[in-house]
Simulated scan of single mutants.
Amino acid sequence: MELLAIVAHPDDADIFCGGTLAKHADRGDTVTIAHMTKGEYGGFDETEAAIAETRAAEARGSGEELGADDVTFLGFEDGRIEYSLENRLEIVETIRKHDPDLVLTHYREDMHPDHRVTSRLVTDAYYMASLPLVETDHEPSDPDNVYFFGKPTSSFDPTVFVDISGYEDRKAAAIDHHESQVEFLENHGGIDAEFDNLVEGVAAEDATLGKRTGVDSAEGFVPLHEQADEYLG
């Protein structure tokens, strides 16, 4: 099985689905993390180019921690991802290039505009990726489903849960690779005050989902397509 996580920024994959990606990688599945941007707005006094270089290196380290086969960057600008046909076709090309069985991305309703636009681009590109008359450099691809992740809010109510018990430390280690961003989020204040003690907060959210589903720790998703199972278990 091949999984493609398309995320807006370095650290998004680790925070929202790091345990799931590591678990699939350990099973022998192919895992790719594609970052829309290099997160060049995530800093204070450095230039955007310097921040991007740091964050890309951190993302490669965290991807290695999770066991990802490929960590790539799609060249969009942090904070400036726009919805357009041109950008949608860029994501079509990304999906076709990697030809995944499953795509993971942001939930459509999120505080961060990059997350919202990424979700819409990926969802619409998923529909276009299988169409033979949509011309790109790679052949059509037809992933089985898209799974959305997000912050636990009134609008995001996951219906699919992955037991990541035993992967808590590895997920935390992956997040810790983003040293510059963890520091930025914990000191930014204002709208990002929720990121105080980021690693501990993420672990607490996963433990809450775990308690809800009868395991120690879990990550939650909303599937684009609800699919029937042959049996309940």
Rank of each mutant, 00 (worst) to 15 (best):
Glu179Ile: 07
Met111Ala: 15
Lys97Ala: 12
Glu179Val: 02
Phe73Met: 03
Tyr167Asn: 09
Asp137Glu: 11
Asn187Phe: 12
Pro143Tyr: 08
Glu194Ser: 15
His188Trp: 14
Lys97Cys: 08
Ile91Asn: 00
Ile191Pro: 14
Val146Arg: 00
Asp196Gly: 12
Glu82Phe: 10
Ser154Thr: 15
Thr105Ser: 12
Phe73Tyr: 06
Lys151Asp: 15
Asp176Phe: 02
Asp144Cys: 09
Ala68Cys: 07
Asp69Leu: 02
Ser84Phe: 04
Leu74Gln: 01
Arg88Thr: 03
Pro152Glu: 13
Gly201Ile: 00
Leu131Trp: 10
Gly67Thr: 06
Met128Lys: 03
Ser84Tyr: 04
Ile175Trp: 05
Val182Glu: 03
Leu104Gln: 08
Ala172His: 02
Val122Gln: 03
Val146Ile: 08
Pro132Gln: 10
Gly201Phe: 05
Glu168Leu: 08
Gly166His: 09
His112Phe: 11
Asn187Ser: 12
Ser154Pro: 13
Thr105Glu: 05
Asp196Ile: 13
Glu139Asn: 06
Met128Phe: 13
Asp176Asn: 11
Pro100Leu: 05
Ser165Arg: 07
Asp124Trp: 02
Glu183Phe: 12
Glu179Pro: 02
Val199Pro: 00
Asp137Val: 08
Thr72Met: 04
Ser165Asn: 13
Ser130Asn: 14
Glu183Asp: 13
Phe149Ala: 07
Asn197Phe: 10
Val199Arg: 03
Asn145Cys: 07
Ala204Thr: 13
Val134His: 02
Tyr147Arg: 09
Asp169Ile: 07
Asn187Thr: 12
Val199Met: 04
Pro113Tyr: 06
Val162Lys: 12
Phe76Pro: 08
Val160Met: 13
Asp163Gln: 08
Glu90Ile: 10
Asp176Arg: 15
Tyr83Ser: 12
Ala174Ser: 07
Gly79Val: 06
Gly79Met: 05
Val182Ser: 03
Leu74Tyr: 02
Arg116His: 07
Phe195Ala: 14
Val199Asn: 03
Asn197Pro: 04
Asn87Thr: 06
